[in-house]
Amino acid sequence: MKTENPGVQFVAITAENAGQRIDNFLRTQLKGVPKSMIYRILRKGEVRVNKGRVKPEYKLEAGDEVRIPPVRVAEREDQAVSPKLEKVAALADAILYEDDHLLVLNKPAGTAVHGGSGLSFGVIEGLRALRPEARFLELVHRLDRDTSGILLVAKKRSALRALHEQLREKGMQKDYLALVRGDWPSHLKVVQAPLLKNILQSGERVVRVSAEGKPSETRFKVEERFGWATLVKASPVTGRTHQIRVHTLHGGHPIAFDDRYGDREFDSQLASTGLARLFLHAAALTFTHPGTGETLRMEAPLDGALKQCLTRLRQQTKK
């Protein structure tokens, strides 16, 4: 390491750090510095790699030279980092893939896709704060606030149009994982039940099966059985609001910890697993890249709470 100017550091990247994102590398070098400040110095170009500006997602290569500016953190500033900024930084860690056309995120459970309805923060607002230089960032599709997993964001209007067309033409394959009540029957591979959306006075959306509703179809496959609960893969053919949640309920097997369509008794049975959130996760997405035309399959790993739940169910099933 050589030093030039008071407080400025120049770090040579070895093979050990090669492949690591610059934002994650800086977090190890600048311990105690708020994530928000790390993204700020990256955005302002105070951090340089080989004398050039880089984006937070830049992956270091062996031989790179990183310029790290002096960072002074007052105790008060460290404590005053707002929850909103912390959420923005967390979104950076959730990015699975990014190029000039699109961004793929493993959305955390509990984060809305956009602000509104009393929420000041959503994924799209967070990404715009994280990528202030991006002229265009728009959601391609949506996920319920309590659902985790793959979320696709377009970075160009042409990409948004192309991806929306794939959705309309059913050229996009979405696969979710859901933990449902009871023993899902192997022969129940498709649920076709029209769905009608009602908006309550509170503004809350409630969906039910109704002959007056829109045609809706979800395909199901059993992934794992636990006797009194089943892990299923759900692949929606149509894209209605709350579709998987209502179709599993219609099939007699509501999803764990679904506060709108679930079963409290089933939820209480799962208490020993530590689960306290909706077990619905957008696990994989297959689509055609709007720029290159190649078929991409993106997979989002389960978060710690869902992994722990499955591990404990497996342990209980073996007993």
Rank of each mutant, 00 (worst) to 15 (best):
L102C: 08
A15E: 14
K44I: 08
R260C: 13
I13D: 05
R157G: 11
K156E: 15
V8D: 07
E299T: 15
P215I: 09
N50T: 03
L151G: 05
F220K: 09
S268F: 13
L96E: 07
N5C: 00
L85E: 15
K35T: 15
D78P: 10
G126R: 05
F220H: 00
Q9G: 11
Q201Y: 11
L105K: 05
L103H: 08
R277F: 08
T28A: 12
M1S: 13
A112W: 03
I150A: 12
E165D: 13
H141V: 07
R131Y: 15
I13G: 00
V180L: 03
V206M: 13
P194F: 05
L42I: 08
A234C: 10
L152F: 11
A283W: 14
L285C: 13
P254L: 05
D267Y: 00
C309L: 04
D23F: 03
T111Y: 12
A62H: 06
Q243R: 00
T28D: 11
A256Y: 06
H247E: 05
V88F: 11
L306Y: 04
S117W: 02
R67F: 01
L102A: 09
D23W: 05
K189L: 07
Q316L: 15
E224Q: 10
E265P: 12
V54K: 07
R208M: 12
P301D: 03
S148A: 04
H247L: 07
E165Q: 13
P83S: 10
F257M: 05
Q316G: 07
N106C: 07
K44A: 12
R128H: 10
S268Q: 14
L85G: 00
E65N: 00
K318T: 14
M1R: 13
V123Y: 01
D146I: 00
L127A: 01
L313V: 06
V73S: 06
T111R: 14
K155T: 03
A159V: 04
Q9R: 15
S216F: 08
K59E: 10
R240T: 08
I124N: 06
G239R: 02
P132E: 00
R161P: 12
V153G: 06
E299Q: 15
S158K: 14
P108T: 09
G118P: 06
F257T: 01
L270P: 04
K31M: 14
D78R: 14
R53L: 00
A162F: 03
R72W: 07
I95Q: 03
A256M: 08
I41P: 03
A112Y: 04
G122A: 10
G116I: 03
R128P: 09
T238E: 01
L119C: 03
